[in-house]
Design a protein around this nucleic acid. Structure first.
Lengths: 318, 318
DNA sequence: TTAATTCATAGCTTTTATTCATCACAAGTT
DNA sequence: AACTTGTGATGAATAAAAGCTATGAATTAA
């Protein structure tokens, strides 16, 4: 009778029970330990009895009047209980630190025709505003970025409208007009502005298929000629910067997004940028995320950072 | 609304909840995870919601139809949950191993006049019977052993009756007769047995105060002379073995417990052991432990081991 | 003996966990 | 568009547990 352990309960041990036995080991007294745990003495007694029954060992040697005594195995169990509780505390701390929406890693995708012009100003400013946020950038086509966003590889992507996919939410960032880039010796050098219709029959150098900017320009400039010449075909794998260099070299003309002007320091004297006559064709740059993405605060911060970053010639959208 | 964490519960996290989130992370599916945890899906959903509310972070990104996604912080929390659960499992294992009453450390006290004769045969046998039991032996006076037993420094003590203390239980082990030890050239060499009364006026060499055996001999042999001579006074700090050597050297006579005979190989030709005439004076050797001591099985094993160990000339007591 | 102290037990209450049934939502399919 | 299917969330009811107060049993001290 005296030494038989009675099976009391099927439920596995709880952290509360571990807290109880640690308290008893510290106070050497059931009543005081209960007080320290903010429960009544019977509550604590029963909980410890349950745990002892479950573990199959006596943890404490009770002798009324005198202080209680921890058994040898009890001491080992209590030592381990300390470890368990400590690890649980660490878990809480991890969550606590992770509460800050501006910490951790954020994987941002940006399309090729935006990245080079937006990121140089965005990244330093974001670094300043959210120093604990580790930003990982992926530049690619809209289609790939969308896939990666959907499957969770990316947290958000910056793309250009139109963009509507199920399960994805978007928010417009800014409206960016298109401009015409001409070599210095071009016939249109004297003109102040260009009409989209002027580009008809012009052989524009444009990016290859997959770049949404290409499609947008073609749509904006009816009847322009693209992809006919040898030169244009060689641009399939290139970038806007490549095209700009070719404009500077006098190879031809193109249409660029307005933000790319700011980055043409070295060849600004070789290229003339001509605005379109209002209403100028433009693209809407937006940020997109999964509908159920949990860190929307982070996205909001990125959005605000972009919208307070001076990008010449764009119209901030709310 | 979407991102607000609602405070649901004051109760701290539980190991069950940690098991739930680990299951979800493994199954990537609430329903399957619930099944794996042998609970219904709402149970698991609510538990996770509670945990998320308590931690203040979203652990999973739910999107119907598609599989659920673990948030970055969620992954960190789940990793830590694995650690907590692992440590809890170790706690159970520690208890499991400690279940064996014949494992761990056992601190046994033995009085000076029993230890040298009982332990040489007991320890090897106990080692054989309980190989996982680490035995720590303390030899001392009854009074000290009792104090240490009471305060938990010792698990059990082997002493001689009379011994009755509050909160302590005892069990008799064996009855050990006393014998008279004489030098070879003593006048009583031809006698077969001695009467206690014969020792009256004899100057016995006995141990110093504190040894219960001294008191028992004095009580058994009325009017014997102890402590008068220079020699006897010099025995204050000695042992039974010291006294035996002095008998062998012809310095005097003494009374010894029967078990000490077996250990007198080297001087057996110099000493004559004479039994008392029945009923011979004797001592009852017993084992004692705290009333609430939890490892009574261990004590029972020690008791049985002693009682099946052949000790010449003693009567086993049940 | 009488108090006082301490842990255990009993009966009852409150809180928490769980289930079943159902809802809401998103994707595909027809 | 209207179904169908698969998913997690929600609500009401219930089972389980954890809790408290009051009391008991054992021990020690006066």
């Amino acid at each position: 009778m005296q030494n038989r352990i009675v099976f009391l309960n099927l439920n596995p041990m709880t952290l509360t029970e571990l807290r109880y036995i640690v308290a008893v080991s510290q106070k050497n007294h059931f009543g005081l330990a209960a007080q320290a745990c903010f429960v009544s003495q019977p509550t604590l007694s029963i909980a410890i009895k349950k745990l002892e029954g479950e573990l199959g060992v006596r943890l404490f040697e009770r002798s009324s009047k005198n202080e209680i005594r921890i058994t040898e195995i009890g001491q080992q169990v209590i030592d381990q209980a300390h470890i368990v509780l400590q690890e649980a505390r660490i878990l809480s701390e991890i969550a606590q630190q992770g509460k800050d929406p501006l910490s951790g890693t954020f994987k941002l995708g940006v399309i090729y025709t935006i990245g080079p012009y937006l990121l140089p100003s965005l990244i330093p400013k974001l670094k300043q505003r959210a120093p604990n946020l580790k930003l990982i950038i992926e530049e690619n086509f809209t289609a790939n970025l969308y896939q990666w966003l959907k499957q969770g590889t990316l947290d958000a992507i910056i793309i250009s409208y139109p963009f509507a996919e199920p399960g994805i939410e978007t928010s417009a960032l800014y409206e960016e007009p298109f401009v015409v880039a001409l070599p210095r010796d071009h016939a249109w050098n004297k003109r102040k502005e260009i009409l989209p219709e002027d580009l008809a029959q012009q052989d524009l150098m444009l990016l290859g298929a997959g770049h949404c900017f290409r499609d947008q320009v073609i749509k904006a400039c009816p009847n322009c000629m693209v992809g006919n010449s040898e030169i244009t075909r060689s641009l399939e794998g290139g970038s806007l910067e490549t095209i700009r260099h070719m404009v500077a070299a006098g190879t031809g003309i193109t249409v660029l997004p307005h933000t790319s002007i700011l980055h043409s320091h070295h060849d600004e004297r070789l290229i003339d940028f001509k605005p379109f006559k209002a209403p100028a064709p433009s693209r809407t740059v937006a940020i997109a995320w999964r509908k159920h993405y949990p860190r929307k605060d982070t996205i909001a911060t990125i959005r605000e950072t972009i919208q307070t970053t001076p990008l010449n010639g764009v119209e901030i959208l709310q």
